[in-house]
Amino acid sequence: MSINIIADSTTSTITTSTTTPSPGTKIRTVVFIYKATVDGQDLFIRGGIDQNIVRPICQDDQDAESSTCAISIQTNSLGNGVPWAKYDAWRVGDTKLDWFGAQPGQGTYMGTTAFGTPLAWTTSNSAKPEYQPLNKWGDANWMVDFTMDCAETENGWFDLKAFLTNYASGWESDITQSPCTGTGADVLPPYSGTKNHMARCGYINRFNFGAGGCEINAF
């Protein structure tokens, strides 16, 4: 919260403002994660509000629908055709960014269940079918585009961690996030030490799998 003091020769007025989004504030948000993969690997994210440091009350939660650490989302289309087939199949019924994996009734792809909120492999090369105009970094930048209820975040911020199929336990390693760059990095997260990527609701967030670097930009 910030405090602004407005004064003239006879009076002084103190006004307060806050960056906490209003209830029901649903804003387009994008996450990119750079990860070079091999055939048969797909990338997902799990997340919401950290349940160890930020909201310990969530530690005993059992499902996404009732957890106060889950955040309501609606995933958006990235296009039509083969490059987006898995993403489109797995995003059906995915209404929460949460720590539990697939939600009841979430879509499958050729019999394979989702492992969280799906991302799609994208490139900045406009000659390739996987091209996405928001991708400014090159190949292997996996992307999810969703509308998020920012009022369910922690003062506009949320946590996430990647889950990669056919890769050890699936989880990426714990993260120590570095100071972010970009036009949306003017505000710091209101917490630290969660061992996850920390992203900003309403912005384009770009991370590296298993590393602490981050870039946050306005649309």
Rank of each mutant, 00 (worst) to 15 (best):
I49S: 10
P189I: 06
V144F: 00
V187N: 07
G81I: 06
G210Q: 09
Y167C: 04
W157M: 07
T25Q: 13
I57L: 12
D50E: 09
W157E: 03
P129G: 04
N217M: 10
N80P: 00
F32M: 08
S173H: 04
A127V: 03
W90S: 00
T68N: 14
T29F: 08
A199E: 03
G105Y: 05
S17P: 01
D98M: 04
S178V: 03
C180E: 08
S12I: 15
P104W: 10
D88Y: 04
T176K: 04
A70I: 06
L43E: 02
K136W: 06
A7G: 06
Q74P: 01
T123P: 06
I57W: 09
A85S: 14
G93A: 08
D8P: 06
G111F: 08
S67K: 10
N135R: 03
I33L: 15
D42Q: 07
T112K: 13
A120L: 01
M148H: 06
Y203R: 09
E172V: 04
T122S: 13
N125M: 06
I204A: 05
S192I: 12
T113H: 10
A127Y: 07
M143C: 13
T147H: 03
F207C: 02
G105T: 12
G107V: 05
I175R: 02
A114G: 15
G193A: 14
F158L: 11
K96Q: 14
D39P: 03
P83K: 01
C180S: 15
W84Y: 14
T19H: 09
Q62I: 11
W137Y: 12
F219M: 09
I3Y: 11
T11S: 15
L188D: 15
Y34F: 15
Q51G: 15
R55G: 03
I53M: 08
N208K: 07
M1F: 07
N166H: 10
N76S: 13
S173M: 05
T122G: 01
D159H: 08
A127Q: 12
N4H: 12
R206H: 11
A140G: 00
V30E: 04
W90T: 00
K136V: 12
P190N: 08
N155M: 09
S124M: 07
G79P: 07
P190G: 07
T10W: 03
D61L: 10
T165C: 03
W84N: 00
T75F: 01
G138A: 11
G170P: 02
T108C: 04
V144E: 01
W142D: 00
W90Y: 12
V92D: 01
Y131D: 03
